[in-house]
Structures are given as C-alpha cells and as structure tokens.
Design a binder for these strands. Structure first.
Lengths: 142, 142
DNA sequence: TCATTGACTTTGATCATCATAGTGATTTAC
DNA sequence: GTAAATCACTATGATGATCAAAGTCAATGA
C-alpha cells in the first residue's frame, strides 16, 4: 500500500514492465509528464524498497538503466488487474493492444509477461515483447 | 490509476471490501488514522467516480452508509493481488486470515468475496463473511 | 433536557508537487 | 580538438495538498 499508493510509482512500474522503458529520460518523457525531481525521488524510493535496481551503463558513462527486481516483477499480476479494472469492460479500439491482451488467457499472459521481463523485455515494448510472442502463438494454435 | 493511485482511496476500499466498514466513523477509526477532511474528500471523489454510493440511513437520520457499486466490487481482484504482493511470500502468523486466504484457490476466494460484498458483507467482516463461508466449505471438502 | 453521537467543515501550519532552470559529466559532430 | 548536444539528475520558488485539532449542526439516548 505504501509502495503503490502513489500514482507516480505505479506509473513508473507500468512504463518499466509494460513499455520497456529503462532510463531516466524515457520515464521523464512519459505521457503523464512527471517532473524530474519527483521522478528522481520515486526512483530512489523504489530502489530503496528493493523493487528496482539502478545500474550505470557500461558502454555510455552518462546513462543509467533501471530494471525490475524479482520483487518488482512480482507486481505484474497487480498491474494486470489494475489494467483490467481500468478498462472496465469498455470496448476501446479493436486494435488496442490492451484489449487484445484482455481477450487472451490470464495465466498465459502472466507467464509470458513474467518471462519477457526476466529476459530484459516487457509486455509491449520491443521486438521480443511478451505481446508479440503471445500473438504469434495465437496464430499457431488457431 | 487516477482513482487508486492514492493510498487513502485504496485504504478506504480495503476497509469497505475486506473489513466491512460502512460509515464515516468506522473509516475514521481505521488503523491508518486518516483525517476527517481528507476522508470526506476521498469519499466524495469515490462517489463521483461511481465506485461507491452514499446512502443516508433510514433508521437513524444521523448515519450515512457507504457501499461499493458494481464498479467498486470489480476492484476486488485488484485488492486481492495487492494483498498477495504485499505479503510477498513472507510467512506471517499461521493464523493470520490473509495467510489462510492466500492458501485457498484464487477463483473460489474471488467468487465468494464478490458474492459476500453483493449481499452487503465483506471478505473478513461480520458473521456472513466470505472468509467464514470459505472456511466452512474447506472443512466439508476435506 | 442535556449530554452524546455522527457526519462532516474550518483553520492554519507544515509538507509535497509543480514547472522551469540549472549543473556537471560525458559523448557526438564538425 | 573544440563546441554543441545528451544524460542524469539538483535547485528553486510558487502553488497546492495534508495534517491535527477544534468546531458545527442535526438527531438521538438517558
């Protein structure tokens, strides 16, 4: 409750786990327009809480990447239910990716999502996204 | 996100759905010590959001009861996952009710919880709680 | 009738958040 | 090899939210 009873922390975790954002700048340029001081504070707090880890980049000394710890990854089902509640049965665009995800089997989605994040990916972000793989599998099964 | 990205709103929903609290005074006397002005604000906000309903009592004109709408009830899985994440695999007292709930089948817990709330009850609060019924069934099945 | 209960409001101080501007260490472009 | 750009932040001052405590006001119970 303390951890996620704050919209910014929740938003950061969403960006990290669903969109595959990893750097300060990426979080900063998110839709919701978080300010740099608040972002810095929340990242530090999440790190102190053992939910994310801060790792300076090895190739570019300016960059820092943030990624989810196991404890952070464990919040995936929470994010899933939050998304489901947020959609609230409302039909959006048929080609909205969340819409597509919600039509899939919950356990399969969670498993694929977990796996993707552990491999450095996320639900929607990047080529190797859980979503892309779920979609591919869907085509094979049917 | 906007709705539950606020710890007080989340706490109110928890008290409502798991502890069966229904009145201003009950919420006010919660563990977390919310102030009356903030409580009033959050209850109004949740009502405007269609998540809870405010109903003046018919027997006592001073009292007001707050209860979850269907939209509010739909937040139960979210609360469930939040609780599960919050426990984080940590074993607490063996006789902690949340511990017992987490050992049960997810779908059964959610179904019983949903039903209890629709009948005016909650997960843990009161005689007719979902927990009490789940426990009773558990004894029969085994 | 008079204290009490219950649902809030008011108030003033403290705390958090906001947008904006900066800092300082890299790294790229020319 | 220098200047511009990028990156992760910090600093700042105004504005907004939160806090505890006390107060209001109608309805009830003793």
């Amino acid at each position: 409750m303390e951890t996620f009873g704050d919209s910014w922390s929740l938003l950061i975790m969403r960006d990290l786990l669903t969109l595959g954002k990893h750097t300060f700048g990426e979080f900063l340029r998110s839709e919701e327009r978080i300010g740099p001081s608040v972002l810095a504070d929340r990242l530090a707090r999440l790190e102190r809480g053992g939910i994310i880890v801060r790792t300076p980049s090895e190739t570019d000394a300016r960059k820092v990447t943030y990624s989810a710890t196991e404890r952070g990854i464990a919040a995936i089902p929470l994010l899933y239910e939050a998304a489901r509640w947020g959609m609230g049965g409302v039909r959006m665009d048929t080609d909205d990716p969340w819409e597509a995800v919600m039509a899939m089997d919950r356990d399969e989605v969670l498993a694929a999502w977990h796996r993707a994040v552990r491999e450095g990916g996320s639900l929607f972000g990047g080529e190797e996204s859980a979503f892309a793989r779920l979609r591919a599998r869907e085509r094979v099964v049917r």
